[in-house]
């Protein structure tokens, strides 16, 4: 961990204005924003802890909680909403037995929502990790989840 934070800071030339990008990179590295990494960042860059915490809670892209192996992202953008995106979310909440924003007990899935992922024509859309699933219906939810089951 020591190095990766320093490397990331260096990549952005120790530039405080690049804090969003720096946090993004930390999140890519650890899948979330670990407390220890943020404290290190605060010390190294001389940014108050309170400011980093503000940023991490203001922007929805960041998670302060550890996330699961697979990220299930349900689109709730308007185009997906008018085609029943919320019903898909309900269905996923039932299947995974968690509410959005949470991780399954076995740590396999984290269920998140997003407002549009830029492929509205194929709504409702769900994305698991890097794979997109278009024209979702309730009955497609189970097979989709099974694919990432193990």
């Amino acid at each position: 961990m020591k190095d990766s934070i320093s490397i990331i800071i260096k990549k952005y030339g120790n530039d405080k204005s690049q804090l969003v990008s720096i946090l993004q990179d930390i999140q890519i590295e650890y899948n979330y924003l670990p407390r220890s990494a943020l404290d290190k960042l605060s010390k190294k860059m001389g940014i108050p802890q309170s400011h980093i915490y503000s940023m991490a809670t203001f922007f929805r892209a960041f998670s302060l909680k550890e996330r699961g192996k697979h990220i299930v992202n349900v689109c709730l953008g308007t185009a997906c909403h008018v085609r029943g995106g919320e019903l898909i979310l309900d269905s996923l909440e039932r299947q995974l037995d968690i509410k959005r924003g949470n991780t399954t007990k076995d740590g396999n899935f984290t269920l998140e929502t997003v407002n549009c992922m830029g492929c509205c024509a194929t709504g409702p859309v769900v994305k698991i990790d890097e794979e997109y699933f278009g024209h979702m219906t309730n009955d497609k939810v189970e097979p989709m989840i099974k694919k990432y089951g193990e």
Partner: peptide, 10 residues
Amino acid sequence: GVSAISLVDR
């Protein structure tokens, strides 16, 4: 000049 606290969440 301490910034001990901040506005959290949005």
